[in-house]
Design a protein around this nucleic acid. Structure first.
Lengths: 114, 114
DNA sequence: GTACTGTGCAACCGTTGGGTTGCAGATCAT
DNA sequence: ATGATCTGCAACCCAACGGTTGCACAGTAC
């Protein structure tokens, strides 16, 4: 639907529930939709939708075993998002550097270490 | 309104137009809504809305001078997002490390260098 | 002064998104 | 075989989002 992996990743991470899900998956390794639904104030189907979003964004991957489907993280999606932020940050830092050279004010470096 | 800076930042970055705007601001230093509207296939008001979103997410900051309002970047918002990704990535890498110690398979490291 | 440009606010419209309910198909335990 | 889970699909609701148009106001230029 989105055709844009970066947008999909950021969009997936935009929802607080989804971020919590990601956190839970990260700390447990792999979780099922029903498990999460028990610890969240929302329906299993809602969780399933969120997981689908995460999957389509390349952030999570399902693995069916028997009747249950366990979801695991896929950090490469996160890496893409981090890379974009890093790029923009770098460009911005470059500008700041140029300005600093002109201004030569105090305020030492600290270039938003992304 | 969002009460959640992280969600606001990710949400702001989720829109491709908004990401382009951020890129443009980053490379030019500061831009006005009208300037951007000329180079985008959308209305100035649409651009203004996007800028408002970026501002509320802590990613951009307006500075009015005379009749024009120039927007500049505020990398700290980006830093917050990057930090979250880095955290989850770290947790995940820790898990991977533990598993690797067990499996001891080939496939050398490469821990999602966020 | 008048004209032009840049901005902001408000209303409106179509689409998407998070959430729910309801139901049907697999799989496991007894 | 029967019942209990775990899952997936579809329909539906309401709120939020991206975008538009229209108008009113503040600076700048002439």
């Amino acid at each position: 639907m989105n055709e844009e992996p970066l947008g999909a990743a950021f969009n997936a991470l935009a929802d607080p529930t989804r971020r919590q899900l990601v956190g839970m998956i990260a700390e447990r390794g792999s979780v099922t939709a029903s498990e999460m639904a028990r610890e969240f104030p929302i329906t299993r189907q809602a969780v399933a939708k969120h997981l689908a979003v995460l999957q389509e964004a390349g952030l999570a991957e399902p693995a069916r075993s028997g009747r249950e489907t366990r979801y695991a993280l896929r950090p490469q999606g996160l890496a893409g998002a981090a890379a974009w932020i890093s790029d923009v940050g770098a460009e911005w830092d470059a500008r700041l550097g140029r300005l600093e050279r002109h201004a030569a004010a105090g305020e030492r470096g600290r270039g938003s270490g992304v």
